[in-house]
Simulated assay, not measured.
Amino acid sequence: MSDSLPLLLRAARGESVERPPVWMMRQAGRYMKIYRDLRDRHPSFRERSENPDLSYEISMQPFKAFKPDGVILFSDILTPLPGMGINFDIVESKGPLIQEPIRSINQVDCLRQLEPEYSMPFVGEVLTRLRESVKNEAAVLGFVGAPWTLAAYVVEGKSSKNYSVIKAMAFQEPKLLHKLLNHFAESIAKYLRYQINSGAQVVQMFDSWAGQLSPIDYEIFAAPYQKQVIDLVKKTHPNTPIILYISGSAGVLERMGQTGVDIVSLDWTVDMAEGCARLPKTVGVQGNVDPGLLFGTPNAIRQRIIDTVKKAKDRIHILNLGHGILPGTPEDNARVFFEAGKTVNDLIGSDN
């Protein structure tokens, strides 16, 4: 144990800390004017996320503005796809578009094994620079998309409301889907190892669309591949904490806690106390303030943070939103969130 390590890293490893660390999902992004101005100069999302100078600059914007306890790589969960032979674009207001959706066993057989140091050297460069810049003032976070969510994008070809194409594959051609999921699990484990070797101290896996699965199908198509990624990474990097986030996860919380993950990130649809009660005490929690609350008053934000932190008492807890910060959120309210998180002990004391 070392007090010289970043607060978030110490907390994520289960050490006793003075307060819950605080950061926000999507903290670098559209709610910040400085980001929107940069986006106007560089309208291509892939340029912003794959040009190391731009990615580094964007990653640092919220750190310079708010000093959160975590600085997360500015990237996208689809970034590793071209390294496997799957091309994509991200269109403003429409989201990701896969140029040739995966629908056949031949397409899966033709996928390349991911070699991130060759196909995504910019990711390693940005993570290394972030570590050098923030030193121990904050933990550097990396992230990936989980196999089911990557598969959902590449099979559907775009974002979906009902995931009918991938669910048809799941129930008509399960062997095809399992082969694709296994390929993604092995590739994502390599990608996480690369991120950690490049400087990431804590990593988060987003299985954004696994909440669209019934619990029985989650156990078939999502959980085993989450676990495969976690097991592969833990073999080589046992001391790097891994966070798992699923949007709409209320129905599968217990199952998330059985994947071997260190921390489960709760969305805002679950009460923090109830979420803690449903997870093993050895598993930490992250979250879970409603992002919509940041359109409210400063006092409402502070009171909800007090409530959340009180309910997570005696647990490994990283204060965060229950989803990404929303576009249009007032920057001053983001500042209130971070400041309240950092002074939450004083706020709780004055609230009693």
Rank of each mutant, 00 (worst) to 15 (best):
H183E: 02
H183R: 12
F184D: 07
S187R: 01
S187P: 01
A189D: 12
K190R: 14
K190Y: 02
Y191K: 02
R193H: 13
R193P: 02
Q195G: 07
Q195E: 10
Q195P: 02
S198N: 12
G199T: 13
A200G: 12
A200Q: 10
Q201V: 09
Q204W: 01
M205S: 04
D207K: 03
D207R: 03
G211V: 03
Q212M: 10
Q212P: 00
S214I: 00
I216E: 15
D217P: 03
Y218R: 12
Y218A: 09
E219S: 14
I220D: 06
F221V: 14
A222V: 06
P224M: 08
P224L: 08
K227Y: 04
K227F: 03
I230A: 04
D231G: 06
L232Q: 14
V233W: 01
K234V: 13
K234D: 06
K234F: 05
T236N: 11
T236G: 02
T236A: 07
H237R: 10
I243F: 10
I243A: 08
L244P: 08
Y245E: 01
I246C: 11
S247P: 00
G248P: 13
G248R: 10
S249P: 13
G251K: 11
L253E: 05
R255F: 00
M256W: 07
G257K: 10
Q258R: 15
G260Y: 08
V261T: 15
V261M: 00
D262V: 03
V264T: 10
S265K: 07
V270F: 01
D271Q: 10
M272F: 01
A273F: 03
E274Y: 08
E274G: 12
K281S: 11
T282Y: 05
G284Q: 07
G287W: 02
V289K: 03
L293R: 14
L293E: 07
F295T: 15
G296N: 11
P298W: 01
